[in-house]
């Protein structure tokens, strides 16, 4: 697999695989991240996995540039994308309950109309799939999940909403996600998840992490309320 190595500013190194995102590639990045934690210990202060990238952050003055680059090159060269298990057809690590209803999902009817689908079809398409967690970020606990069934793919809103409520289940392009906390957002909202996705009071604080497989489970309004969901 082709890769590039380089600096990310003065205190971080960036590894990018030049192929398209895929679960096997993410798993390779996770493997290298684990090895980096063992190799560099506390001088490695943080690491962030993107769709095709691993960025390693070092404490100031602790980055031995040449040795780190040589080590990363070695890892990237030997890693093989051997893992060909298909996460989209295996059991999910995390199942998130979702109320798919226009009362909590302002774009659900629009999406069904736009695709000439019934709302039930949209729900079935979104909840039958198993998704893979490619990256985290944007907001604490926010996780980019793929791959959305082709029939549901839709561009972002031209003007993002100023306020998307916590728990909103959203889609954009080939991705889906749950907004962990209230924030602005340009994705289309098709449901609501009553379970918290991020809580600093528990370890780990984020419910979803890179490499996890996720499925959405349709629930009714009574279950939604029983699980703590609120309908505005």
């Amino acid at each position: 697999m082709d890769f590039e190595l380089g600096p990310a500013g003065e205190a971080a190194m960036r590894l990018v695989f030049t192929g398209p995102p895929q679960p096997a590639l993410t798993r390779a990045l996770l493997k290298i991240e684990t090895q980096a934690n063992q190799r560099f210990g506390s001088t490695l202060t943080d690491s962030v996995i993107g769709y095709t990238t691993l960025t390693l952050f070092f404490s100031a003055s602790a980055l031995e540039r040449d040795r780190t680059e040589a080590w990363l090159r070695e890892q990237a060269e030997v890693i093989a994308l051997t893992d060909d298990s298909d996460p989209e057809h295996s059991a999910a690590d995390v199942v998130l309950p979702v109320l798919y209803h226009p009362s909590v999902a302002p774009d659900l009817e629009w999406l069904a109309d736009d695709r000439s689908l019934s709302i039930d079809n949209v729900i079935a398409l979104h909840s039958d799939a198993t998704y893979f967690a490619y990256a985290t970020g944007f907001a604490p606990g926010f996780c980019y999940l793929g791959t959305l069934p082709a029939a549901l793919r839709t561009p972002r809103l031209d003007t993002p909403r100023a306020k998307v409520p916590a728990g909103a289940v959203a889609i954009a392009d080939a991705q889906t996600a749950v907004y962990p906390c209230e924030s602005p957002g340009g994705w289309r909202l098709i449901g609501a998840c009553p379970e918290p996705l991020f809580n600093l009071g528990i370890t780990p604080p984020a419910r979803l992490s890179v490499g996890a497989t996720v499925r959405f489970e349709p629930i009714n309004e009574a279950d939604f309320r029983a699980l703590g969901g609120v309908i505005a």
Binding site: R14, G50, Y51, T53, T55, G137, Y144
Partner: peptide, 8 residues
């Protein structure tokens, strides 16, 4: 594809 940012 979304990736890590950094200071600066």
């Amino acid at each position: 594809y979304s990736e890590a940012t950094c200071y600066g």
